[in-house]
């Protein structure tokens, strides 16, 4: 049974990844291209400023893959494999929850586990550390940023599991509705404390030293020797669109995992459920 569930989960994840990639190709790539164009133009402006100030000019890095490969093939392979991985993990979570999380139909459980995956692996961590397009992010802080992001993912998942456990413990005393509300509130408070404690990317020591008192690593305007703005900061509309599309792509991915897996789980599990002794089918 677990083998069937896991293979179906991985398949659902791959299909969900494909759908999410199609969305990304249409909506995200123009924003990513805009961000890369901004980055190149900014580097050119920085070079001109450095030259005027008599500083050594920094050289650009070489391309390993062309933009066409990255924007059409790489992003597709990346998102489809990510979907497959998340689908497999989803199925592991589903198999463990099955029969242990109260009176939930197989297909409803599929949607609930997918919702948990969306929250734990993406949405909650992204509230603290949102997705950033190219040109946002300082190379020297990549290790700290990666550790902090993974900490957010880890805490979100741990607290979600804890909230489900707590909700079930409270169910006898409070009833379904109030137990769910109490567990949800406990999750919000716990993750809220973690988000307050963890630093913003702008607060990292090396960022404070080089860039001053900023909350994030989003590029600020470049200023010339006279203090006038020589090149604008990162375009706010591009950043907003990129982030909205990033949330949408993950929402598509996880709801597709749930919706594709749900009927498969129903077919796999409902015969056992509906076949009561005496042989009558129970319709719900």
């Amino acid at each position: 049974m677990e083998k069937k569930l896991i293979l179906r989960g991985a398949l659902a994840g791959a299909i969900a990844g494909l759908l999410s990639f199609l969305f990304a190709r249409i909506f995200a790539e123009p924003q990513i291209q805009a961000a890369i164009s901004y980055e190149s133009a900014r580097e050119a402006a920085q070079g001109a400023l450095d030259k005027a100030a008599g500083l050594p000019m920094s050289h650009g890095d070489h391309e390993v893959f062309s933009r066409a490969i990255q924007a059409n093939v790489g992003v597709g392979v990346g998102i489809i494999l990510f979907g497959t991985a998340m689908g497999a993990l989803f199925a592991v979570g589903y198999a463990i929850c099955l029969g242990r999380t109260g009176d939930v139909r197989p297909r409803s459980l599929a949607m609930l586990v997918a919702l948990a995956g969306f929250l734990g692996f993406y949405l909650v961590p992204s509230l603290k550390y949102p997705a950033n397009p190219p040109s946002i992010g300082h190379g020297e802080t990549i290790q700290q940023r990666t550790s902090l992001y993974l900490l957010m993912v880890l805490f979100s998942l741990m607290f979600l599991v804890a909230a489900v456990w707590l909700g079930q413990r409270l169910q006898d005393r409070l009833g379904n509705w109030n137990a769910a509300l109490a567990a949800g509130a406990a999750f919000v408070v716990a993750i809220g404390i973690v988000m307050l404690i963890l630093p913003s990317f702008g607060e990292l020591a090396s960022n404070r030293a080089s860039y001053g008192d900023l909350a994030t690593e989003t590029p600020q305007p470049l200023k010339g020797a006279d203090g006038a703005i020589a090149f604008p900061g990162f375009p706010a509309d591009t950043l907003y669109a990129f982030r909205v599309y990033s949330v949408a792509a993950q929402a598509i991915l996880w709801s597709a995992i749930g919706l594709i897996f749900a009927p498969m789980a129903d077919r796999l599990l409902e015969p056992a459920r509906d076949h009561r002794p005496g042989g009558e089918r129970v319709t719900r």
């Binding site: 990304a24 995200a28 790539e29 990513i32 391309e63 390993v64 893959f65 490969i69 990255q70 924007a71 093939v73 790489g74 992003v75 597709g76 392979v77 990346g78 998102i79 494999l81 990510f82 993406y122 961590p125 992204s126 550390y129 949102p130 997705a131 950033n132 397009p133 190219p134 040109s135 946002i136 992010g137 300082h138 190379g139 990549i142 940023r145 990666t146 992001y149 990129f242 599309y245 990033s246 792509a249 993950q250």
Partner: peptide, 20 residues
């Protein structure tokens, strides 16, 4: 080597991972 990073680069940004 940066081949893996560069190949899935756009997906990495778009899926919310820190990069660059």
């Amino acid at each position: 080597d940066t081949h893996v990073h560069e190949f899935v680069h756009d997906a990495r940004h778009f899926l919310g991972f820190p990069c660059h």
